[in-house]
């Protein structure tokens, strides 16, 4: 295994990876678009503001990250902002995954849907809605997918007990 160097913050990524197609695409868009970045374990992570998520996906898709691979959320309670959304994009051309992140607040978690960019995100966003209670604005069919329709609570939140409510 080749141990890749770790670039812990935005500054280091901008200095050493400005040629990277994903970093370049973000910089060409706007200098403020990239609010955070890191390179760890051989993976590039770029963080954008939640209101810019759809635009970021359009830009990255145009830059060669053509395949939407996966999307999920992480609940960082009690930290604020509470929810981290992680989108994993794959480039068939560059043979590489990148992670796109956005953080949303816990009080009324809502973020734009990216189903207009990748229809594949449809089920994934429904899953995150179901299990985390994060809403996706502009989703064509936002309803529970795993749990029954009348289920109470969102099981993957950290304040939901592993055994469920009894």
């Amino acid at each position: 295994m080749i141990l890749n160097p770790t670039l812990p913050d935005r500054q280091a990524v901008l200095e050493q990876m400005s040629d990277h197609p994903a970093v370049k695409a973000m910089l060409d868009w706007s200098t403020e678009a990239l609010i955070d970045a890191k390179f760890e374990f051989g993976e590039l992570t770029v963080t954008v503001a939640p209101e810019k998520i759809r635009e970021a996906c359009v830009r990255l898709q145009a830059a060669g990250y053509n395949f939407f691979d996966d999307m999920t959320a992480v609940d960082w309670q009690p930290a604020t902002p509470r929810f981290q959304l992680s989108y994993h994009l794959l480039s068939h051309k560059f043979r590489e995954y990148i992670r796109l992140r956005a953080f949303v607040d816990g009080a009324d978690p809502v973020i734009d849907s990216i189903t207009q960019v990748w229809p594949a995100a449809n089920f994934y966003e429904r899953e995150v809605f179901d299990l985390f209670g994060i809403r996706f604005a502009g989703h064509p069919d936002l309803r529970r997918i795993m749990m029954p329709d009348d289920w109470e609570g969102h099981p993957l939140r950290k304040d939901y007990p592993v055994e469920g409510y009894r």
């Binding site: 374990f41 993976e43 691979d69 996966d70």
Partner: peptide, 20 residues
Amino acid sequence: AGEVYQGIECGHGQIGYYVV
């Protein structure tokens, strides 16, 4: 501490594990 996303090819297609 950290996060990784590992993808592999199984019989049906791509599996990915995201471990935080």
